[in-house]
Computed example of a mutant assay.
Amino acid sequence: MNLRRFTTIAAAGIFAAGSLVACGNDSADSTGASGEESTKITIGTTDAGGKAWEVFEEEADKAGIDLDIVNYSDYNTPNKALSEGQLDVNLFQHLKFLSEYNVGTGDDLTPIGSTEIVPLALFWKDHDSLDGIEGESVAIPNDSSNQGRAINVLVQAGLVTLKESGLITPTPADIDADKSKVSVTPVAAPQTTTVYHEGKPAIINNTFLDRANIDPKSSVFQDDPTSEEAEPYINAFVVRAEDADNEGIQELVEIWQSDAVTEAVAEESKGTSVPVKRSAAELKEILDRLEDKLKNQ
């Protein structure tokens, strides 16, 4: 197999050409590293160019799995492609994103294995603690995927109090200003690093730290990846409900959780990613809880 072969999809609605090869021994049509027949699995992601994916593909090949990796440039298409049968499985999202997709579309895509959590953190230039932060305005990402989580980071830090506790995706309007120690200023996610360099506290998505020359380990606070509040942000392998017991796809979970891939993920995230091993049943329970809350909002 020619490793590092993947298709990039640049726009929603345009999928890899050719028919999907089902996951099963009778679908094998290539040869793995061992010289034995390989099972072909088509997987979608938004980060195929990373080192972790390179190692993942190599380890899958050793296990006799020929990965056909489809890389998307947006976050909306991979679930649609999976639902429509263009993919066997995808790996790009956390459970909260999946719950919003399922509730919004009426779909029933399901997680079968966990990968990691990347904590969301509060950074404050030239500070190594929260001392003196009371009265400051904290910049937070204004996008729907991160704003609620950022506010909950401040809740966990004891800096913000919500009018109603336990909200999964609180907005600035849900903050009780009189009981909070800081205020928030929503800005475009890339601008949080600009605010940081101006000397003001900011919650910054891990994606923007490296390009802004910010040490991921210099945060003054981050959410606890083992807490219940962090569960919505567990990243997961996702399949159509009818494929939840597919052994070939389940093997991919074990490969991702192997030492080789785990080390590559840690290197890429500069040690900020936290490996998570949750069973499919546990992930489905979390997903169901998230979907129920969304439906009752």
Rank of each mutant, 00 (worst) to 15 (best):
M1T: 14
M1C: 11
T8V: 14
A11H: 11
A17D: 13
L20N: 06
V21K: 13
S30N: 10
T31F: 11
A33C: 11
T39V: 15
T39P: 01
G50W: 09
K51G: 10
E57V: 12
I65L: 14
L67D: 00
Y75T: 14
T77P: 04
P78W: 07
N79E: 13
K80H: 07
A81N: 03
L87H: 03
F92A: 14
L95N: 02
L95Q: 03
F97D: 09
F97C: 05
L98I: 09
Y101N: 08
G104I: 08
D108W: 02
L109K: 10
I112E: 05
G113H: 01
T115R: 01
E116I: 03
I117N: 03
P119V: 01
W124H: 00
D128C: 06
G135L: 12
S145A: 13
Q147L: 14
I151C: 07
Q156Y: 04
Q156G: 12
V160M: 07
G166I: 11
L167H: 03
L167P: 01
P172C: 04
A173C: 06
I175P: 01
D176V: 12
S180T: 03
T185I: 12
V187L: 13
A189T: 05
T193E: 01
H197S: 12
E198P: 00
I203E: 00
F208R: 00
R211S: 15
A212P: 02
I214D: 01
K217P: 00
S219C: 13
V220K: 00
F221C: 01
P225C: 09
S227I: 12
E229Y: 13
E231Y: 11
P232H: 05
F237R: 08
R240M: 09
E242I: 11
V253I: 15
Q257P: 06
S258E: 06
D259F: 11
T262P: 04
T272F: 09
S273L: 05
V274E: 09
P275E: 03
K277Y: 08
A280C: 08
A281Q: 14
A281Y: 09
I286V: 15
E291T: 11
D292G: 07
K295F: 11
